[in-house]
Design a protein around this nucleic acid. Sequence first.
RNA 1: GCGAAAGUGGCGGAAUUGGCAGACGCACCAGACUUAGGAUCUGGCGGGUAACACCGUGGGGGUUCAAGUCCCCCCUUUCGCACCA
Length: 887
Amino acid sequence: MAVTAAPINTPAVERSPRYNPAEIEPRWQAAWDAQPELYAAEPPTSGKPKYYVLEMLPYPSGQLHMGHVRNYAIGDALARHMWMRGYNVLHPMGWDAFGLPAENAALKNNTPPREWTLANIAAMRRQMDRLGLSYDWQREITTCLPEYYRWNQWFFLKLYERGLAYRKNSKVNWCPSCATVLANEQVVDGCCWRHELVAVEQRELEQWFLRTTNYAEELLRDLDKLPEWPEKVRTMQRNWIGRSEGALVDFTVVPDEKDGRGHRFHPVKLNLTETFMEPEPEAVKISVFTTRIDTIYGATSLQLAPEHPLVAEFAAHSEELAKNIKGLLDEQKRAREMGVLGDLEKHGFPTGHFATNPFSKEPIPIWVANYVLMDYGTGAVMSVPAHDERDFEFAKKYKLETKIVILPRQVNNAEGVQKEPLLPYTEENSLLINSGEFTGLGCQEAQQKMAAYAEEQGFGKPSVTYRLKDWGISRQRYWGTPIPIIYCATDGLVPVPEDQLPVLLPEKIDITQEGGSPLARVPEFARVTCPKCGGIARRETDTMDTFVDSSWYFYRYADPKNSHAPFEAEKIAYWFPIDQYIGGVEHAILHLIYSRFWTKMMRDLGMVKNDEPVERLFTQGMVIKNGAKMSKSKGNVVSPDDMIARYGADATRMYALFAAPPDRDLDWQEDGVAGISRFLARVYRFATQAMPQAHAGRAQPLPQQLNALEQQLLRKLHQTIRRLTQEFEGRWHFNTCIAAIMELVNDLTAQESAIGQGAVNAAVLYSITRNLILMLQAFAPYLAAELWSQMAEDTPLLRAPWPVYDEALAAEDTIQIPVQVNGKLRALISVPVAISEEDLRAAVWADTKVQAAIAGKEVVKVIVVPGKLVNLVVRATSPTTPSTDAA
RNA sequence: GCGAAAGUGGCGGAAUUGGCAGACGCACCAGACUUAGGAUCUGGCGGGUAACACCGUGGGGGUUCAAGUCCCCCCUUUCGCACCA
């Protein structure tokens, strides 16, 4: 797709003498809209190296906010820069268009979700266009359209085939405000991620899950393959995956003698250990996960989570216990609702039962404790008060036995007698005592040997536990991807055959606030015939979590119109991984862990070759105002439209890059936008005035001999190019890039009248003006386009090569060397940059200020840092110097 | 509680490698043009002083000829994790 140059470089109308973004910007926007191929990625055959730069796709709320503007301004600057660097750039945009707000809007305004969403998309698209963002709109994707979501369904079927999607009944997080289930990742501090103050409830429901835990190990390990991700994000993901290495150990419940039958429990098969069950008598085992099996001889009780199945059995035989357990559970529920679950004081109750420690063979009491979590490990822990902080606190409260079984390797006091360590003592660099045959081993060695011993003896094994849970994707909502499953009375669970995809989301639906999945109330959707037997069957009426949509959307950009497959493998092989992904840190766990999972899953399906979707990740800071995040309730929201109307898109974008480095929070100050607007007006004035003169120097070489002014201006130009080149390659401090351009422009405008009188050679002026425009493009594309058209160049601005700086021209010939006396600045001397050290010393001694500063003192040392600074270390010549006030 | 990042003029920020602290912008002050400007231009602008001196990068100590930058202790703010056995 050849890019035609003509329309782009046509100065369309008479230029106003003053900078008028309200006139310039819409005119160029229209020109760009008429040429969508201008920003289109070229095919792989273009021979250019590829560069995939991506900003996180927005939810179409209907209004861009300043956070979006900042995000896109960063991405757009980079995309434009990389184009000029000669890359084949893919810079697409789309819409994360399913989700609850559309249903809420439907309730409020009686507008169908689809209509509402598409109208919002159109509105935001207009805002993006107005900002002059260089997106390849031919690749736009909208996740709520069947062309897209059918592939969610297709993936679901693949996952189901491979057992990676499964249905199970379990306790799930329920947000009463969203009226739907949430994934673990969507619960923040016990509350819904969208409703900060709404506590998540636990409900027992049958739900679809994706087996993210299959990839737990790889998701963790491959974080090491992402050195270009912020360390903060990697740490958050590591914490979230939460790998713990340890062992499972079975404790056997001691049969109850009072009961007479010798045994009164049913055998319970805990899911982590297979237990062979004799018919009579049945040994009941409690499996425990521990990372400190080395301290097992110090276990003085077992602690079960209140929800542990065995607890219910115990309680069935004791009214008092049943009452206590109910108390614990009620308290936990209240605490969760108030969001203070973590602050609960530890407490619990003895069950009256005992279990045998398989190592020491000693019986220890079984308790129920509120600090044991049912959803981590096995829901049961061995309590070692001497060597665990939580157990210590609990044991102290209930006066449980404390047994010390590890001691420091070194004698821990001056008397040379090993004393009891301060409890709880958890140091792993210790030795075991009172631990049977393991006494004397180091902790780490003991951990290996004891886990192996447990396995040998059949009462345990080494084990790894993760905090990461499978991803629950069922949502009891309407506006999402239908899950392609059919329930048949005869055939059970039947996947929708691939050739019947997509399962279309019905558009005619009454959104009400009634409970349950809205689709269940649409008979023509829910009622279906079984694909296998043709009998009456029922569709799954839950929809998918919208994070499914965003887990793979960036692959679809590479092949957005494909109607046979989600994408073609070769296209992915060319474009992936994403070179640069830019977005807010709020998705550090959610989107960024799901999409890593999805990539690995697709790789295992043979669809992609890359292990990771994103090579480099950049998380930009928030936009704040008056020290606080912008929000309607605080009344400090600044509207992008408003800024654009007052100052133009260029000034708005440029301010978003100028006010702070992109990774830091940015305080929005409207006066600052006005400042940028004034700066752009100066650029416009200078460039337009210089243009006729500069044209005379077009295609001319720079003169052999440069006068002082030419030299000075060219030096500044090349220093500026160097600065920008390095920043784009390195740390992205666009604020200093813009400051550097301002310095250049300040130098130019200071010489405006001299330039007007012809003091600068036309070729020099041409070079300066042209390069200034090229540098400006990344930050103020409209003004750059306008001025470029005045240059009457043939190449479209976006394809013009990025200027190369000339070190020789950038080099200073004279520099100011600071001269310090005892580290304090005393003089600045002007010397040639290439001065010899000898001459520099001579110049220092010759300087009158230096002479005054060292008069009457002895110079004991001279430090010369070539090209940087001179420091004279002096001391008073003699003790008789009249500093006599030391009386 | 644990971990990470940050703290520099009235404000946003700069100082990339230990080498002139405060680039650039905002605000403010003075002036020019203008028969009353939310325009433009010129100059000033860390504190202090008549001018120097001197003081100054959260606080305290240290290393060094030289510290915003390196080391130790402390304070504050933001973020992440927080019964994970």
